[in-house]
Amino acid sequence: MLIRSTSGPADILPSEITSRALFEGRRRFLARSGLGLTAGAALWYGLGGEARAATARLSAAASPLSTDEALTGHEAVTSYNNFYEFGTDKGDPARNAHRMSTRPWTVTVEGLAARPRSFGIDELLKLAPLEERIYRLRCVEGWSMVVPWVGFPLAALLKAVEPLGSAKYVEFLTHYDPEIMLRRPILQWPYGEGLRMDEALHPLTILAVGLYGELLPNQNGAPIRLVVPWKYGFKSAKSITTIRLLERQPATAWRRTAPHEYGFYANVNPDVSHPRWSQATERRIGEIRKRPTLMFNGYAEQVASLYQGMDLRTYY
């Protein structure tokens, strides 16, 4: 058993200073036993300075919505990212995203709601009980991962602002600061994404604030990002600053750039191939051989009913 014993402020309890190997063992145990991680309120961020960020542990309950598939390694999850604001090479976000300051941070929820308002990040971290959600992540480029996110249902935030009956869509706008991000207009900045209201309220849809039991690294979309596990990864907007409740379907970043390649729905679908990539198979990061891609990324049982009667070739 490994215990990390040196780095970290003195007021962190020894029980909080957990190596990743230990954490994973504990996580697996908890996932099996269905218990929550309860040891300590570990929102160190709220208590102190930068130094704590590196070791801040999140207290999160295991979820029955998690998969028990083998996790993709922490190194791969945090070094192989698409976050075009920081560069288009997969390694660029890990190299450049440290320039982004994620404190203070507010998320403004506006539009068709009875109580639209802004939320500070500390408030968001306490808005709903945090859960660990181990989800498959399928990128439109044909690779996939299994990521242990920490977050809470987007529905919890939406309910807090009381959406009006006329609100049919949710738009997500993300942080854009030309001082620290790409200026070339590769995509229209800020990056925008959207969901239909029923998709946004679906229990699988979460706002993630952490992964591997720690606060999100910047390259993964700190401090708060969307995760919609049955859709291609580009739907899951990172570093969100604004959420809008709308009557009409919003324009979205990749669809603006190449509407014949990227649809609004972007549901993982092995039968509808992308002009550049067959979507029938995928390479799980860490594996050599490809594996078949599952309908709705394996979440068909939970989400197929949302699309009943829709032609998924038209609404790709």
């Binding site: 190194e75 791969a76 070094s79 192989y80 997969k90 390694g91 690779w143 390479r283 990061i285 860490g286």
Partner: peptide
């Protein structure tokens, strides 16, 4: 390739 330093997706 041998040393595993080609990143998370060495085939790519």
């Amino acid at each position: 390739w041998r040393n595993g330093t080609l990143g998370a997706n060495p085939i790519e």
